[in-house]
């Protein structure tokens, strides 16, 4: 019985689409374009978020020690810093190791170190903080607490510019969200208007159905399925188009920004985002048909 009814409703929904192909195409097109724009925002948002996370998790606090402190003192301060709850790991880099690192990094200028009588590099402690303390306030509070150690000459951490980037990213998020919501509302308004044209084209039929005892549910379901179908198709096509555009853009810009692209390691939307976009399309179609039918059934 349930299956038969389901089949009946699907049949009526497709009949409705066949009866008004133009209106259905307009609705599908509007949903597709709207989800494509939204999807573009999501791709940018997703990749910026990845970059920010990467930078944030790779960032660490570098502590430069005074040359005068003894090896025992160095071990002592290392242990004390390692004792902080924020600290994941502390790595000691001696003056000699620091020089070797710099030599290795700048090997083309190898000769420039030959004349040195004294090693100018300070011993350092590379401090990796636990993930949950990697927010800018977390790092700043940690730095403020270790500053009091007299063995420390200087502290460097790359949170300042991450903080700046985070602020920009938040702005982008808010802007993107506002545009996204505005876009969705505009789409629902546009599509529900053209959807209503489809409903009104069948006004007489629906009016008769009401007069012979059809419930609102019975009248609504085929339209709801029509909306779901438009939304689903719009979402799938927009995801396909988005993927195509993404591939073309990456392919075209790769030669010019190869270093950055490798560093940024861009990626298309993950499955949960794609799933979300698809569900979003379906919900949009449903909402449109609910809004349109509500208006129609209210007047009859």
């Amino acid at each position: 019985m349930f299956l038969k009814k389901g089949f009946y409703f699907f049949d009526k929904a497709f009949q409705g689409i066949r009866q008004n192909p133009f209106i259905n195409f307009i609705n599908f097109g509007t949903i597709t374009v709207s989800l494509l724009v939204l999807g573009t925002f999501l791709v940018i948002f997703f990749n910026l978020n990845r970059v920010l996370d990467k930078w944030r998790y790779e960032s660490h606090v570098t502590v430069y020690l005074y040359d005068s402190i003894s090896f025992d003192n160095t071990s002592d301060i290392k242990d004390r810093i390692a004792g902080f709850e924020e600290v994941e790991r502390v790595t000691y880099i001696s003056k000699k190791e620091a020089l070797n690192i710099i030599k290795e990094a700048l090997q083309i200028y190898d000769n420039s170190f030959e004349g040195l009588e004294v090693n100018p590099m300070p011993a350092t402690l590379e401090i990796q903080l636990k993930k949950k303390f990697l927010s800018s306030t977390g790092v700043e509070s940690f730095v403020a607490r270790i500053k009091i150690f007299k063995e420390i000459k200087e502290i460097q951490y790359d949170q300042e510019w991450i903080k700046g980037f985070s602020a920009f990213f938040s702005l982008f998020q808010i802007g993107g969200l506002a545009i996204g919501v505005g876009l969705l509302l505009a789409t629902i308004l546009i599509v529900s208007n053209s959807f209503q044209l489809g409903v009104y084209a069948r006004k007489e039929e629906l009016e008769i159905m009401k007069l012979i005892g059809a419930t609102d549910f019975f009248i609504k379901v085929p339209f709801l399925l029509e909306g779901v179908f438009q939304g689903l198709l719009g979402a799938l096509v927009s995801i396909g188009l988005l993927y195509g555009i993404y591939q073309v853009v990456i392919f075209k810009v790769r030669p010019f920004f190869s270093i950055y692209i490798r560093e940024l390691d861009p990626s298309f939307l993950p499955l949960d985002f794609i799933f979300g976009l698809t569900i979003g399309g379906i919900l949009m179609g449903m909402l449109v048909s609910i809004v349109s039918m509500r208006k129609f059934l209210k007047s009859y």
Binding site: Y8, Q19, E204, E205, E207, I208, M209, K210, L211, I212, G213, A214, T215, F218
Partner: peptide, 30 residues
Amino acid sequence: RRNIGIVFQDFKLIKTRTVFENVALALEVI
């Protein structure tokens, strides 16, 4: 309304449905 049959002056038949389908509609809706 399922206990009431209604007939109108302007017939109120669905133009895109055949005679059979028009009559069947009253049973489909229930």
